[in-house]
Design a protein around this nucleic acid. Structure first.
Length: 220
DNA sequence: CCCCAGGGACATT
DNA sequence: AATGTCCATGGG
């Protein structure tokens, strides 16, 4: 089986097992009610979720909706101290309030997310490769595969596939169909699978891709 | 008590 | 290029 066939087979098996993940969750009724851009919610939460559980991000988003406005305009206008208190549950709150300001001024207007160059987005302080690719893919609907530590771990275990962030990103983008919906779902499925089975100490018993994994423990 | 979460910047080796 | 440290809240 070629790498191309392998990646697609893993994707289809994970999709079959877990179903559609539908990242990024968006409160569409909020944005139509408040006349705010849903892409703002994705951009803001992409920063908030850095090394943080989604659960804690949701708490911060709720506070922004309740005591502020969940939009990049609000982030630009609110004073940093207030912003810190709103996002506190997401952790690293002093760091992240500054990062939110940086990205909110850079992605102004929000429409810029659909044409800005990746290299330019990466110059924003606080926006690394994963956050940049997540913003481009999920908010910009652009063909940018997102790599994270789960992707590294899973691919090394499944196929012995190692490499830098850019190496892995190129591999996925070279072999997968050029389809943003597949990019979005596959990344989400990889994360879900890494959390449920392919943890730091893997739970190979019941793993949906055990049969295609070079390092699965056959006895478990 | 421990470890980890949908990372990134910066320093050190 | 690889590894270490800091940033912080919340849950298991």
């Amino acid at each position: 089986m070629s790498l191309k066939e392998f990646l697609l087979a893993v994707y289809e098996r994970l999709l079959e097992f877990y179903g559609y993940q539908r990242w990024w969750p968006i409160d569409t009724s909020y944005h139509s009610r408040m006349d705010t851009d849903p892409r703002d919610e994705i951009i803001i939460s992409a920063v908030l979720v850095q090394n943080t559980s989604w659960k804690n991000v949701e708490k911060a988003l709720e506070r922004m909706k309740r005591k502020g406005i969940l939009s990049l305009d609000f982030v630009r206008k609110v004073d940093e101290k207030t912003l810190q208190e709103l996002i506190r549950p997401a952790g690293f709150y002093r760091l992240k309030s500054h990062r939110l300001k940086e990205v909110a001024f850079f992605l102004n207007p929000t429409e810029k997310v659909s044409y800005v160059k990746r290299q330019e987005l990466l110059k924003v302080r606080g926006i690394g490769k994963e956050t940049a690719d997540a913003i481009l893919l999920y908010a910009g609907n652009r063909l940018n595969f997102v790599i994270d530590k789960y992707t590294h771990r899973l691919m090394e275990r499944l196929y012995g596939l190692k490499g830098s962030y850019e190496d892995l990103k190129e591999t996925f983008e070279k072999h997968l169909p050029k389809d943003v919906e597949i990019y979005k779902e596959f990344h989400a499925l990889i994360d879900e699978h890494a959390k449920r089975f392919c943890k730091s100490t893997p739970l190979c018993g019941g793993c949906p891709v055990k049969e295609m994994c070079i390092s699965a423990d056959p006895s478990s």
